[in-house]
Amino acid sequence: MTTTPRPAETTASGAPAEAADARPTDWPLWEVFVRSRRGLSHTHAGSLHAPDAEMALRNARDLYTRRSEGVSLWVVPSAQITASSPDEKDAFFEPAGDKPYRHPTFYEIPEGVHHL
């Protein structure tokens, strides 16, 4: 392998390199969603880095479907995801918990009645 002329920026021991944010080599993060087979929805599988969407898709194919785990892939820039509130168990979801009448098990049906 040929060697590159690039000097080792971080090899000096103890040189603080943590502040190296947004270096050009720092590819953005993408979230990967895999449809494991027809009829199922895409499910979040994990994330990866890629310079752009096309490469993200290819990297996702190589990484997340190398054992035939999928028939379709989505990749989304992680930064583009809008999430619900930071605390995932708060008022945003609790109100749904006291509406049991939305679930079929709420209702009593006499024995012997079918197809309901």
């Binding site: 050009p24 080599t25 720092d26 590819w27 953005p28 310079p51 752009d52």
Partner: peptide, 19 residues
Amino acid sequence: AWVREAAAAHAAKHGKAGR
């Protein structure tokens, strides 16, 4: 490093970066 830089530069040039 030059490979990673190249891909990032290409994405920036073509407005494809995911940020």
